[in-house]
Design a binder for these strands. Structure first.
Lengths: 246, 246
DNA sequence: CGCTTCCTTGATTTATGTCAACGTGCGTGG
DNA sequence: CCACGCACGTTGACATAAATCAAGGAAGCG
């Protein structure tokens, strides 16, 4: 398991021992599994090791709003210790595996390693950035560019998580998922996807979409790749991280 | 200043000393002031003591998307130490005052008090919940209910921050702000507001909107008030906080 | 006073949703 | 093996929400 976490690049080798100390177990679940119900309690924080999932919230009408997609390296329930109940559910899109940690232990780990605390903060900050992006898409873009923006962000996050570039072009999501995430009807998503396909920017396969021209997609939706001096690094010790507390 | 922070209810008395130790200064700025440019660096984290502001992101077209509203008790730049540059700007809607802290010192404060660390985490978690709400609005609601939902959330947050109930009904924002936040044209916002006014749910004054029937507004947009055993408490020592690390 | 900002309203256009229908592939049970 | 249902993609016709364009009014402010 260590290999996985370090490969994802979130933790330094020194902190792994601490994390290992509070690590409870690794779990695997099949596609479609409801990992967490809406309005449930959170006992464990999880880091996704592999697979795809969605965080969502249901409406009285029976529709649901996908808050965001969960990819390898992402956290679920990081703040579990702070609230009695969640206001969202988590459902797996593909088979997926997770490292599980008791919430309370995770929070107290802050005090054992400044470096680890910074890493956890960094992950929380990433989470917040993701949501900001989602707000931006929903508020400021039209259907086609919204889809393009989402696809580009997913690819970007996959790359950041250490997924191989070729695989990071492949999105195992249905057009219905896209609609639920972007507030569009699946019919309209379909029309926009066909348009993108006609432009040669994406490919529509049996098991999801594939990005063909990420560069053109970025251009289309005016996606900002966050070019810092040494961007695209997931490790908080380098690149994005401005202050090292070690 | 202590009175303000404790009144807002985020910190316990024990932690105030630590926070006071790293507190740099209190600043005040006039309405319209650009507190933080897009793409700038963050040197200070700020806690808003009074006033209203927006966090926004600009588009090439000249429009801007308001990510969220900043109210008393909210943090800005909590993660400042973790990134070299922000991807959003902050502009004041009204005159406002802030407590300022060097980012790095704030992060290291985690290690001086578990209670304080939990409080900061709690604030970050609140931030994330806010964004989730915003995503929900933008993705799942139509124009009128979107506006109602926003107004109800703002009122709820004002109450949580310790603002007096009467004052928490009053929103010093323009219809343009609402449009920029909710991805609607100001013309359409106006039509929806008039509809809400005609229903007797809000009042449209010279300096913003006033909620007349929060209950009916909640019902209209199916707003969940997060009723836990002892909800509506801002202090992480009680209510929402499930685990106390002290 | 003349400027600006904000609110307001009507007419028209555009983007997107809804409804309905059909095709495909795929798994399941007979 | 086949028949069936089911989830997903696709397309067309139509309905509706919201944007855009245009114009004017009211309040604040130099």
């Amino acid at each position: 398991m260590q290999e996985r976490l370090t490969k994802i690049g979130i933790f330094g080798p020194g902190d792994l021992a601490i994390l290992e100390g509070i690590h409870r177990r690794t779990s695997t679940h099949p596609a479609g599994h409801l990992l967490q119900p809406e309005n449930g309690a959170i006992e464990n924080a999880r880091i996704m090791l592999s697979g795809w999932a969605v965080r969502f919230r249901s409406l009285a009408s029976g529709d649901r709003q996908i808050i965001n997609f969960v990819l390898p390296g992402d956290c679920i329930g990081l703040y579990g210790a702070l609230f009695e109940r969640t206001d969202f559910g988590v459902e797996l899109i593909t088979d997926a595996s997770f490292a599980e940690f008791p919430c309370a232990a995770l929070m107290s780990a802050f005090h054992q390693s400044a470096r680890l605390g910074a890493a956890l903060c960094w992950m929380a900050a990433q989470d917040e950035r993701m949501l900001e992006q989602q707000v931006f898409r929903l508020g400021a873009l039209n259907a086609t560019t919204r889809i393009a923006h989402l696809l580009v962000e997913l690819q970007h996050r996959l790359l950041t998580a250490g997924i191989k570039p070729v695989e990071a072009m492949s999105m195992p999501i249905t057009q219905k998922h896209i609609g639920e995430a972007l507030g569009l009807s699946h019919v309209h998503v379909n029309r926009c996807c066909r348009k993108l396909k006609k432009l040669g920017l994406i490919e529509i396969g049996a098991h999801g979409l594939t990005l063909l021209e990420p560069g053109e997609l970025r251009q289309l939706c005016d996606f900002e790749p966050k070019k810092g001096p040494s961007a695209d690094r997931a490790d908080p010790a380098h690149g994005d991280l401005a202050v090292n507390l070690g």
